[in-house]
Amino acid sequence: MSAKPKVGVFKFASCDGCQLSLLAAEDELLTVAGKIDIAYFLEATSHIGEGPYDIALVEGSITTPTDALRIRDIRQRSKFLITIGACATAGGIQALRNWADHDEFVRAVYARPEYIETLATSTPIAEHVSVDFELRGCPINRHQLVEVIVSLVAGRKPKTPSHSVCLDCKRRGTVCITVAQGVPCLGPVTQSGCGAICPSYDRGCYGCFGPAKQCNTGSLSRQLLADGTPAPELVQLLRNYNGYAPEFRRESERLAKLNTEDS
């Protein structure tokens, strides 16, 4: 990669929080900014460069026909395309529409639904174009973002952990919230990255970093159901910010079906 790679930051359906993480890296911002050429970052600068880009950081999910075309264009103009955050890697919370009647959703929000042009689904970027690296999280961990940028500049593969939040709780010495308090927790099936914050604040993990590698969602459901968590509640717990990620999606759909068969 050239000495000072050109970086573009692009937004699709999202809250801006993940690209804000770049501005929130206060200690690293000016140093990192000195190592890269910020060619396109609407939130930070009025300077707009056309590309091609060495690194494209993409936030948000695909929810409109226009955006489905725009991501192809960005892909063509970018050497490395990195998706940042749960919207970009899994469809985000707006992917709840994927299980709903989309037209009814639009009618519920808009007085004049005929003006609204959206797709019936919210899908991750990787369903539309090839992605070189996915950085998980809702929001992403800013240290991981800096690691991704620094490693690409150095020409090596980014190192981000893929073990579960559960392991981080053990490392922190947090008493297990499910075992001790009977609170449902996705820690055993969720990828590390947040620092296992929720259990340390006396609440269960709700899956911000998506499915951990080789997670056993079926086993966790079995345990939580046996502990008395109703199936519909488990379905919703799985259908959060990473609900449409394949492992969480399959399990929530299995549980939803189980629930219909039971009743």
């Binding site: 699709f12 359906a13 999202s14 809250c15 801006d16 929080g17 993940c18 690209q19 804000l20 929810t63 409109t64 955006d67 985000g92 919370i93 707006q94 709840l96 529409r97 709903a100 009814e104 959703f105 639009v106 519920a108 929000v109 808009y110 609204i116 959206t118 919210s122 809702c138 929001p139 709700y206 509640e233 919703q236 959060n240 910010y241």
Partner: peptide, 30 residues
Amino acid sequence: EPPRLFEALLRGRKLEEVPDITARICGICP
């Protein structure tokens, strides 16, 4: 900005989840 339809997707969710979900409307002022 593409609409994300928060007011629709909140229906049917547990009220305890609302502050977590509405935070996602904005990463600057959650």
